[in-house]
Design a protein around this nucleic acid. Sequence first.
DNA 1: CTTGACACAGAACGAATGTTCAAGTAATAT
DNA 2: ATATTACTTGAACATTCGTTCTGTGTCAAG
Lengths: 237, 237
Amino acid sequence: MMARKKSAGLNEKHIKVLQTIENFTNTFGYPPTIREIMERAHLSSTSVVNYYLDQLEEKGYIERSRGISRGLRVLKQFSDAVAVVTEQVLETVHDFLSIPLVGRIVASEPIPFPSSDFKPYDAESSMISIAKDMLPVPEKNIGDIFAMEVSGDSMIDAMVNDGDIVILKKTGEARNGDMVAIWLNDNNETTLKYFFDEGKRIRLQPANPTMDPIYIRDRSTVEVHGKVVMVVRKLSA
Amino acid sequence: MMARKKSAGLNEKHIKVLQTIENFTNTFGYPPTIREIMERAHLSSTSVVNYYLDQLEEKGYIERSRGISRGLRVLKQFSDAVAVVTEQVLETVHDFLSIPLVGRIVASEPIPFPSSDFKPYDAESSMISIAKDMLPVPEKNIGDIFAMEVSGDSMIDAMVNDGDIVILKKTGEARNGDMVAIWLNDNNETTLKYFFDEGKRIRLQPANPTMDPIYIRDRSTVEVHGKVVMVVRKLSA
DNA sequence: CTTGACACAGAACGAATGTTCAAGTAATAT
DNA sequence: ATATTACTTGAACATTCGTTCTGTGTCAAG
């Protein structure tokens, strides 16, 4: 996780919850339920929300009325919390990463892939800069991050566009459901697919439901290069 | 007994209920339940309260959200629900930009949106960090950058997903084909659409081909808030 | 006196919603 | 490694709370 002081400050989810409450209340005139916070803050369980609500109360940002629906009120307006956020931004601001842009994911040709001895700072390759706290990657894995540019629109079904930059974590293995960059030896190409290990075979699922999955029985013919952790798209200004 | 005029005004109980709601809301920060109104207004049954709430809504004094606990709000002035904007520029550090995350783009609800005198830092926002050299925006315009989080999947085939963060450049005008965040006065919402000025009308094209474009003839009913310059998607690591 | 609109009582139903727990995973400290 | 703390999951449970329904009483007009 990101370097963050837990005792005093608010982490990303605290802020998200707090922001959701304020937003909702301003919009509807009454505070949200736990489940409504869950949806809007993209959290996964009511108990997670409850967990953070307790902490926000502990820290004095909100007050809860137990057992009462929508029993929430914001004590410190978030403006007060901005100072905290600011602090965190300052903390992490010099904490950014230059990620090597190692190549392109092209449908028709193999890509130069960072070998195990690839250096984080390669004068030749171009770099992209990402704040560490933007990366959903634990600190210790941050050295395994690299980036590639997508060329062609073969990945459109995965919501990834021509010209997008995908940021990947280098890994030889993937868990089911991960979006991975995978080298297909037979097709002589690297693509982005959703990865599912089904035991006797590997299923590579395009995001586009109209496209059929690819089944791999011989694991030696594929090579997982990395797991997608972020996608960045620049549009023309 | 008092002469109760039915059609026009409010009788004693209407007022009592109304005042109870306001009082309660001011005190606790959230609206009362029907039963709480019952106690405080010294009424004898929940159905009585319900009865008067319906009438108050009929008369336009309150708004009810059916089936929702504490789903009440007093319709007076839409006070300055928009967040007070505090501002602070700490951006100068390094080559980094802390971009205010000003809210969400939600299909079904209005969002508090920075007004025309929008300042870089919003009270209700958290920030995201982007390297300046990552932004396809000239340095001088960098103060006009802000970010929003997308909620809902109406933009799915614009390659924009639920949970994505879109980074926008504040602008009142757009060029044809730009993806813009646009405020629809009629619908009271902000959405992402492709913008096309067709002379006598504006066409707002959803990316989803199953959805019909929106045509705007009265330009005063829409407001372009910004042009999308970047999309960032974080995946779970 | 009926009739009907209005105001109210009381209870019961079911959906909405807060709470809790047992167990799991991940990050961090020892 | 191992222990420890921090966080997450998913579900079940219990209560709160909006709704609805049946019935009662009032009052004024026909």
